[in-house]
Design a protein around this nucleic acid. Structure first.
Lengths: 195, 195
DNA sequence: CTGAAACCTTGATCTGGATCAAGGTCATTT
DNA sequence: AAATGACCTTGATCCAGATCAAGGTTTCAG
């Protein structure tokens, strides 16, 4: 398998491409980790120490409410980021969990390292700005959909726009991501599959 | 009333403070606009041409679904930004409306001008990155709350965290922002006020 | 191989919030 | 000062989706 850090460089190249110095800095300031299925890189009460880039595998970020019910906020597959940005920047305890849904290979950048990259190589400011803007737009649309569409429409949208995830992730997690119970999602699936 | 562009400079100074050259550039590349109540700066089908910073007044951004129902995505009061980032960057038609809820004074930065600021003065990359990160965190928490809390809890949270808005904005709009009908919000208010 | 845990489904029932309908109070316009 | 439209409330009814309960299948650690 190719070099995970190389994959990360390639990811940035899709924005404003990195030069040699920036690549080197990025490799020095990041670290490859291998996670096994059901491994956590963040648990409630801990500070989220790193921006995590998924090179291989699939992860989820979720919150557990006072009744003990999990609420999936985000999935991350190959070439996607996962991090509790709030906790990362304030260095305060997170209320979220980040868990590997499969064995994963990820690249992590810790707080001090990212600050270093930002100040030494302003291109990272630029690239992360653009990356987060895109994520922001996506999130806005999810919130709009949550308010403007019913469960059936939201599920249909999910399957259409994330067929990979729909096939890869247990339906319990999809249900939680969409904001419905697993039972109700099961009924929706039964209904739509017989068409 | 003070210079609106000065207010915008002061806003940036709360992040990485601007130097003289950056202030000058910002003033050259932005434009003050006055809007009257119910004036639009964006309508469905148009491209969102500018990042808008509210100096005085209050605005909302919303979508209209196929049944004609409005869904408020965001409010912006004094010292807050409002923009359809997706449409702004892609320069494709927006599906959103941005409307003044009161007479407003705003400062606008158009696409070409913002690009200019980004490339000539990288500090804007940095500052907007941080601004959007903060907005992103807020939005994530709204989505989590939407899925994890009921209408009563969401309304209580809104009143507690945005007392200004709750007093300023008609309840119809608050209801839509929270994802409930105005009728139901009215009942919630009746219930909680008699405690 | 075996047992426990994770996952999916289906049925019966319940409920938070939507929908429909009507009337009442303000502001703003004419 | 009347009239229009925006806003809020309250009642009656309905329904999308939750909850509770049970059984069945797959997965995987020991």
């Amino acid at each position: 398998m190719a070099d995970p850090q190389q994959a990360l460089c390639a990811h940035f190249d899709r924005y404003l491409a990195l030069d040699e110095a920036e690549r080197t800095a990025l490799k020095e300031r990041s670290r490859v980790r291998r996670l096994k299925k059901r491994g956590f890189i963040l648990q409630e009460g801990e500070v989220c120490r790193s921006y995590t880039y998924v090179v291989e595998g699939c992860m989820r970020m979720y919150e557990v409410d006072e009744k003990g019910v999990e609420h999936n906020l985000q999935f991350a597959q190959e070439n996607e980021w996962i991090v509790d940005i709030g906790s990362f920047h304030t260095e305060k305890p997170s209320s979220l969990f980040i868990e590997a849904l499969e064995a994963c290979v990820v690249v992590c950048i810790e707080h001090a390292d990212l600050l270093h990259l930002y100040t030494q190589h302003p291109k990272f400011d630029r690239n992360f700005r653009v990356i987060i803007e895109d994520l922001f737009v996506e999130l806005q649309q999810r919130l709009l959909r949550r308010n403007a569409s019913n469960a059936e429409q939201r599920y249909a949208h999910f399957v259409q726009h994330h067929p990979g995830l729909a096939a890869r992730v247990p339906n319990v997690h999809v249900a939680s991501y969409l904001g419905v119970t697993p039972e109700f999602l099961s009924r929706l699936r039964a209904k739509t599959s017989k068409r």
